[in-house]
């Protein structure tokens, strides 16, 4: 071999890289969300797909423009904008107007991500920033819930909303009777609610694949859901330890939030211990809002509030130095 015609690269070790990449992770998460979207089309009608597309377009176009304005390389193909769009859409009611979904996607990317410096620098989950923005701006549109399989624009409150009222008024009925849904209805998503939150089965299928691929770990989802379960078992009944924790676990956006949004890398703690703390915190805030707060649902706010605490959690969960004697 002669060296004259061969260019040799000299750089420092290591010389080997794994095949994982940011795009691969983001697109896989997006893929894992598809089953839930398909279920929403079956339960709420095919129109939900247009809402999802609008939200994704809003996110993608905003990302495109801001990359151009900031004269940064185009980051669309890393999949994070598309993922944000999908997650936002999944947090919208099934009859949301398309312009609202588009606006939400746009705000999610701009306020939630671009202003902080792009992917990796945002402190809040962008999709949830989008949702909270829409909640504050269009409260009526954001709380109009069609009944499952409803032909007309018949509306029906979500299980958690019913529960919130019903729990206040009666102690006679069992808790599933109050909300008028069975556990299996809740598990399969045959109930009112946001587009992508309802079908627990579909969400768990996708999540199982993410866990298998080690793209997410179970620390956050299990501690989050576990805390909600225990807390609602203790406090949500007509006396201590009489709550129907299954209703709280299966209703609202808990499963979607716990597996797909609280596990967001950028805005969550870095260590396993930190993730446990984060999950427990999310669970506690969710329950406080659900049981005693002004909203029937608290997952979004819980995650956003815990996003704020993330740097603090990271500071207190530094791994013990190798070889250090305590």
């Amino acid at each position: 071999m002669t060296q004259e015609d061969t260019k040799i690269i000299v750089e420092s070790s290591p010389h080997l890289r794994s095949e994982e990449s940011i795009p691969r992770i983001m697109w896989t998460v997006a893929l894992c969300l598809i089953p839930s979207g398909v279920m929403s089309m079956l339960v709420f009608g095919p129109a939900t797909v247009w809402i999802i597309i609008s939200a994704v377009l809003g996110a993608v176009i905003t990302e495109l423009i801001s990359c151009r304005l900031r004269k940064k390389p185009l980051t669309l193909m890393d999949g994070s904008a598309v993922l944000t769009g999908i997650l936002l859409a999944y947090n919208l009611p099934p009859q949301s107007p398309l312009w609202m979904a588009f606006l939400g996607g746009s705000v999610a990317i701009f306020l939630g991500k671009v202003l902080f410096g792009g992917l990796g620098f945002n402190i809040f989950n962008p999709a949830l920033i989008g949702r909270v923005f829409l909640m504050a701006s269009f409260p009526q549109l954001m709380t109009r819930w069609p009944a499952p399989f409803g032909i007309d624009a018949a509306t029906a409150p979500t299980p958690l909303a019913v529960f919130k009222d019903g729990f206040a008024n009666t102690n006679i009925l069992t808790q599933t009777e109050i909300i008028n849904y069975s556990y299996s209805d809740l598990f399969l998503g045959l109930r009112g609610g946001c587009i992508g939150e309802a079908c627990i089965l579909a969400l768990l299928l996708g999540a199982a694949y993410l866990v298998y691929k080690q793209y997410i770990t179970l620390e956050v989802p299990l501690s989050f859901i576990g805390t909600v379960g225990i807390f609602s078992w203790i406090f949500s009944g007509s006396g201590f330890f009489k709550g129907d924790f299954l209703i709280h676990v299966l209703s609202g956006g808990l499963i979607l939030g716990a597996f797909y949004m609280a596990t967001d890398y950028v805005t969550g703690p870095i260590t396993k211990k930190g993730k446990l703390v984060f999950g427990v915190g999310c669970g506690l805030i969710t329950c406080l809002i659900r049981l005693w707060g002004g909203y029937p649902e608290g997952v979004s706010y819980a995650i956003l509030l815990m996003n704020v605490v993330t740097p603090l959690i990271d500071r207190f969960t530094v791994p013990k130095r190798f070889g250090e004697v305590r």
Binding site: E20, I22, G118, L119, G120, Y265, V266, P269, I270, T271
Partner: peptide
Amino acid sequence: QPCIRCGRCV
């Protein structure tokens, strides 16, 4: 690319 804080390295 920027760190996405996935925590794998930790």
